[in-house]
Write a protein that binds this DNA or RNA. Structure first.
Length: 215
DNA sequence: AAGCCATACAACCGCCCCTTA
DNA sequence: CTAAGGGGCGGTTGTATGGCT
């Protein structure tokens, strides 16, 4: 394995890759501390919406998307960074088995973790761990590279819509999951919404997680 | 000591749906 | 009703860092 970096010591790569524009081109690349500060200030005042406006008010020469990403993945309060515990790793593995590469859903079940972080963690750590297994189990839910995200996206939207409607909680069935876990078969037939109530994404459902891990 | 390589992770890109004017 | 912009998401890339030779 490679170096495990101390997350707290990570600093924005100031300037190096920043196309500090003299014209109206937007900034790209790493964020500076100054940019972070400005962004956080404006969000504190105006809330995390209308990202383009936020970028403008903050005087950041960034596109709205970039601001949103920075906030969600880095600046937002209550974000845990680095040091993914064994429990969390186990949970990611299980959820990935169920959900495939639906990182936002997986992240929704890991308090303080972002989809980007989980995606990165998966790509750098876990995908290697399970690769040998996957060779045996062919054709599971998520191939890392889906052909044109269209189908994937439609499925995603469909599921999103479903969960909106199914506002009334599905009771999570530990047994079901563990059976599935043991079965080691494809997830294609499985309706994940039978297991998760995604309508409660906002709440950090620690109880749910601990139950899950015990399974 | 220096160069190379693997790893980790921040950030960008492209797609598509949703919302708003 | 429709077009444009906003926003969310997964995939991918770029680069700093640290280990190895």
């Amino acid at each position: 394995m490679g170096p495990l970096r101390d997350q707290s010591s990570l600093k924005p790569m100031e300037g190096k890759n920043n196309t500090v524009s003299t014209k109206k081109e937007v900034n790209k690349g790493a964020w500076t501390e100054e940019e972070d500060r400005k962004l956080a200030e404006v969000i504190a005042l105006h809330g995390a919406k209308r990202w383009k406006t936020i970028a403008a008010i903050a005087g950041l020469n960034r596109c709205g998307k970039s601001c949103r990403l920075r906030w969600l993945n880095y600046l937002r309060p209550n974000i845990k960074r680095g040091n993914i515990s064994d429990q969390e790793e186990d949970l990611i593995l299980r959820l990935h088995k169920l959900l495939g590469n639906r990182w936002s859903l997986i992240a929704g079940r890991l308090p303080g973790r972002t989809d980007n972080e989980i995606k990165n963690y998966w790509n750098s750590h876990l995908s290697k761990k399970i690769k040998p297994k996957e060779k045996q189990i062919k054709g599971a839910t998520s191939s890392s590279r889906r052909q044109g995200s269209k189908i994937n996206y439609q499925t995603k939207i469909h599921e999103r819509d479903q969960t909106k409607e199914e506002n009334n909680s599905l009771i999570f069935n530990n047994k079901g999951i563990s059976n599935y876990e043991n079965s080691n078969t494809s997830t294609a037939h499985l309706d994940v919404d039978d297991f998760f109530d995604f309508s409660n994404e906002g709440s950090l459902n620690l109880e749910w997680i601990s139950k899950f891990i015990q399974a």
